[in-house]
Amino acid sequence: MLWGGDEIVALNRRTALARLTEVAARDLIPFAGRAVRRAKRAADQLAYRTLGPDFEERNLALKAHYQDKGGDPFGLDTEFTKYMAMVTSVAHRLWFRTSVYGIENVPSGGALLVSNHSGQFPLDGMMIAASMFMDAQPPRLVRAMVEKWAQTMPYISLLFSRTGQVVGVPDNCRRLLERDELILVFPEGARGVSKPFSKRYQLQDFGPGFMRMAMEMGVPIIPVAVVGAEEQYVNVGNLEWAAKFLGAPALPLLPQLLIPGGQLPLPTKYHIYFGEPMSFEGDPDDDELVEEQAWLVKQNIQNMLGQGLRSRQNIFF
């Protein structure tokens, strides 16, 4: 009885806005909900046909893993991640037809995946994540550190946090490593991703932050080389002044965007090489040592890139 009384009071206190929202919730949302459910079912079926029964199993394994851990404090939503994983996995299997080598080198605990960065848009990160999801046993979720300005953008910030990507501050990285997570780092940063076509497969300067973190936390570094991303968009130069004006990290000139259909990346074949784990020790405040060891990782990745390029027959096949 008490509750009934409360409800009447609550209804009387409703504002016009509340009533409008209620109409929306009662009449429009079920309609939209049906459409969403239908779309989800269709997507599930498509995933089953293109990616095999494996996809759903891997999803369940990932979900169970995070449930055992008592959820994720960074805002990861495994249900949402499933659909993002679907999109990336389709691109991984069908568009880029990715070949993955040495994925058994990735240990089961916390580790840093350190990779070259290329391709104008960070699709290489998505493909590495898709490899860890589709090809690793058991499936792993890759957590990347994203730029701070991404947090200020509506929906984009949401997309990142729901898929388990976190703001790039050292404390977050430490916390994730303590939780045995796999962290993807691109030490070249924007310098690597937006370099012109003429500099393809030449590693840019490595920031030393990843090495400091690995030494401090005592976690292994897995060098990763991605071959095939450099040719997906052909960059003829960067407009630095325009990038500065817009506050963006870079503004590449991509002529192919003007051709109809050229907005999609070229369907190059991706080869992703996971190297053997590298362990480092020492004082993380010793700048010289940090630089030296970061250089070792860089050389290792450069060698892996060279080998990958030599064994590649064709850019597209």
């Binding site: 504002t15 806005l17 929202t21 805002g75 509506p154 984009i156 910030s157 949401l158 946090s161």
Partner: peptide, 13 residues
């Protein structure tokens, strides 16, 4: 609030 306003595209922890 009876109707809680939120920001479109933001849903922080």
């Amino acid at each position: 609030l009876n109707t809680v306003p939120t920001l479109a595209g933001f849903d922080p922890m």
